[in-house]
Nucleic acid binder design. Sequence first.
RNA 1: GGAUCUUUGGCAGAGUUGGUCGAAUGCACCGGUCUUGAAAACCGGCGAGGGUUAUACCUCCCAGAGUUCGAAUCUCUGAGGGUCCA
Length: 415
Amino acid sequence: MIDLKLLQKDFDAMSAKLSRKKVDTSLIADLKQKNEELKKAKTEFETLQAMQNSMSREFGIYKKEGKDVSELKAKVDANKINIATALETQRERQEELETLAMSIPNMPDENVPDGADENDNIEIKKVLTPCKFTFTPKEHWELAEQNGWIDFERGVKLATSRFSVSFGMGAKLERALINFMLNFNSKRGFEEVSVPVIVNRNALKGTGQLPKFEDDLYKIDSQELFLIPTAEVPVTNLFADEILEESQLPIKMTAYTPCFRKEAGAAGRDTRGMIRQHQFHKVELVAITTPQNSDEVFDEMLACASDILTALELPHRLVTLCTGDLGFSAARTVDIEVWLPGQNTYREISSVSNTRDFQARRAKIRYRNGNKNSMVHTLNGSSLAVGRTLVAIMENFQNEDGSINIPKVLEPYLN
RNA sequence: GGAUCUUUGGCAGAGUUGGUCGAAUGCACCGGUCUUGAAAACCGGCGAGGGUUAUACCUCCCAGAGUUCGAAUCUCUGAGGGUCCA
């Protein structure tokens, strides 16, 4: 959530930043207005409540002294009615404000480039050079089927479209990749955690998926529970409602989970193959830091993800997302795109984001900052999307006959 | 699924004849005295959010609803935990 105090103090700066993310200034103005209305309603209620409290105290004293309370009771009863209406309006204002505030995205950092969509993203650097093939490289679905690694039809049979089944070496490689990535991250100082893949509404509000993106989530109807779209949700929310000691920070974690996404807005895109599935494996990095440290940790996370690809000998590039491509909660994001020779293009395989204090404010994750409590910064990044890594291995390590070599670093994991 | 007990500040744990309780006490933590330094001892501070220049004031004792002039304390519902039964 954006900082309402800051909004009150510096409306212009804030609306300028948010307008870069295509948030209408009138919406921000509305938010400010609602905040002021809430404050007013609160003051009104609190004044009445203070009266009530002091009269009630008086009441107790009267009783003890055996005085007549009938006059006082009349006053107090009359006030009670006013309190009830004041409380009601306060609640209405509160709800209005919250509904609006929770649906406004994070402000982009100063140095995030302006742009409309992914075409305006800016490449930072390329790592490893794509190798030249002496034949026309195939796309991964062809290779996957030829080698018997992935069965797309049977996935559909079991569930619905955008589900697949891995067999044999395909399944082994997935497992190998997960283990390799977790080990790699552990060595970089990220503690491994294993978390629920079903979470409640509150957790999803904390990280920003709700209330706005309910359509993208699989919901368990009978209870207010959802399948996670990313491990970012349970891992970040581990520390919701907590006040951490500064000495505990940064907290750096890594988790493997399956992820579930409805892909509601992706009709027709990537329908073939396993680039965009409803269920996929992902190893995630999450960090909770002080504001001073978050950029440094961001670089660590980015390096970690990039170095995994390098270790797997997969050419990739780093791309700074422009304002138009930036996610709801992110102040800043760098994507890693892996080279897919079959598709002859770079495709997203990781996304590292700093949400600054946006999620922290929603999830109430604070730390003791001297003698006061401040919001932490939260960061998340994939390291990596397992299915897409497998796709990249297939396409980059293919031979002319359709067989596929295995990256050396994975060999120990395949015995 | 049924019965019963339980849910308090970072932790432990008082508070259940409703009032001055945001809440004793201990531990932890922070500051100080002492010490070459540390420990111990002693002194002081120490829940969160809003509000204020600062006070005042308001809210929060699992969540929600209710009774009452007034609820951590009483009633109901729900959630988590324990025990017993099926």
